[in-house]
């Protein structure tokens, strides 16, 4: 398990756990980022992280992104 900013770019990952407050949790899940969701990591270069959820692209600030723990899909 690794937190989102430290994922390789272009990797497909599955969310395992979100270690955030209620609010962060709700905001993320309403955008399709919840435990069990599949994401594609597009951009992790410095600062914010860009992930693809379905066909939509979600930008996450470094702080909130580091609360999302994922596992690489093979």
């Amino acid at each position: 398990m690794v937190s989102l900013p430290f994922c390789g770019e272009g990797k497909e990952v599955r969310v395992r756990e979100i270690k955030g407050g209620k609010r962060a949790l709700e905001r993320l899940s309403s955008l399709g980022i919840y435990p069990g969701a599949k994401l594609e990591v597009l951009n992790t270069k410095g600062g914010p992280v860009l992930v693809k959820v379905g066909e939509s692209r979600i930008g996450l600030g470094f702080g909130i992104a580091s609360k999302v723990f994922v596992e690489e899909e093979r």
């Binding site: 979600i58 930008g59 909130i64």
Partner: peptide, 9 residues
């Protein structure tokens, strides 16, 4: 506000 935002196509 923590940065969480959709980047539309």
């Amino acid at each position: 506000e923590a940065f969480v935002m959709e980047l539309p196509p």
